[in-house]
C-alpha cells in the first residue's frame, strides 16, 4: 500500500488544461518564493532529496488533496524543518527567539546560488550489488508496492505497476536507493533499469494495444519473470 501521491492510473481527475507556452513561469509571486525558500533551506544540508520528497508525500491525504502544488512544498518544508530540529514548534508559532542559529554559517548566499544550482546532486554511485538483469530480459515487479525497510515509507514503485511483467530496456547504472536514503538508512546504491510494460499488463482496458509505459525501477523491485 502506498500513499496519496501515488496517483498513476487513477480515475476522476477530469481534463488536463494546457497552458500557453509563454505563460508566466510562476503563476503567482508566492509560487516562486515557495520554490526558492524550499531550495535555499535544502542547502542547509539537513536532509537529502529523498527525505524531502517523503516529507511532501506524508502530508495527510486530506491536506495533499486540497493543497495546491506549492502549498505542498511549503507545508512539507515546515514539517521537515521541525522534524530535523532546524526549527521548533515555538518558532512556527512565531514566538520571538531570534539570535544566532548553529546552522547560520551554512546559509546559501546570493553570490553562491548560480554555482550551487549548476552543481546539481547526482544520484549515481559505485555499488557492489551485482547486475542481475540484461537488456531484453523479462522481469516482474514485486506484487505489492511498498517500502520493504520502513512500514509506510518512501518507495518508487507506483502501485499501478506492481506485480506487472515487463522487459528491461536499458541499465542506467547504479543509483542511490530512495527507499533506504529517504529514511537515513544509507544510500544503498544498486542497479537501476528502465523497464517497459505493455499497457495490457497494466490496465484492464488498455487504450491502444501497441502502447507502452516505461518506468525507472531499482533491481530490488524486480524478479525474473
Amino acid at each position: 500500500m502506498t500513499r496519496i501521491h501515488d496517483m498513476g492510473g487513477r480515475f476522476g481527475d477530469g481534463s488536463v488544461v494546457p497552458e500557453a507556452e509563454d505563460a508566466p513561469v510562476f503563476a503567482e509571486d508566492w509560487h516562486g518564493r515557495a520554490l526558492a525558500v524550499t531550495l535555499a533551506a535544502g542547502f542547509l544540508g539537513q536532509w537529502n532529496i529523498d527525505i524531502s520528497r517523503h516529507a511532501r508525500e506524508k502530508l495527510s491525504p486530506k491536506d495533499y488533496a486540497r493543497f495546491s502544488y506549492y502549498e505542498k512544498w511549503i507545508s512539507g518544508l515546515a514539517d521537515l524543518l521541525v522534524d530535523k530540529g532546524v526549527l521548533t514548534l515555538e518558532d512556527l508559532r512565531g514566538v520571538d527567539r531570534d539570535g544566532d542559529h548553529p546552522l547560520a554559517e551554512r546559509t546559501l548566499k546570493a553570490e553562491a546560488v548560480a554555482d550551487a544550482l549548476a552543481k546539481g546532486g547526482p544520484a549515481d554511485r559505485p555499488s557492489s550489488v551485482e547486475v542481475r538483469f540484461e537488456t531484453g530480459q523479462a522481469v516482474r515487479t514485486l506484487g505489492q508496492s511498498a517500502n520493504r525497510l520502513v512500514e509506510g515509507g518512501h518507495t518508487r514503485l507506483p502501485a499501478y505497476a506492481s506485480g506487472a511483467k515487463g522487459r528491461i530496456l536499458r541499465l542506467h547504472g547504479t543509483h542511490v536507493l530512495p527507499d533506504s536514503n529517504a529514511h537515513e538508512l544509507g544510500e544503498a546504491p544498486e542497479p537501476l533499469y528502465a523497464v517497459a510494460f505493455s499497457t495490457s499488463e497494466l490496465w484492464a482496458n488498455p487504450e491502444h494495444p501497441s502502447d507502452e509505459v516505461v518506468l525507472d525501477l531499482w533491481q530490488s523491485y524486480l524478479e525474473p519473470a
Partner: peptide, 24 residues
C-alpha cells in the same frame, strides 16, 4: 504561509532573501 516561513528563517539567519531573488 510562505511569507511567514521565509520571515522566520530569515530572522534566524538561515535564509538570505537576496539568494531567493537570485533563485527566482
Amino acid at each position: 504561509r510562505v511569507k511567514a516561513l521565509e520571515t522566520i528563517l530569515t530572522r534566524k539567519g538561515l535564509i538570505d532573501p537576496a539568494a531567493l531573488d537570485e533563485i527566482i
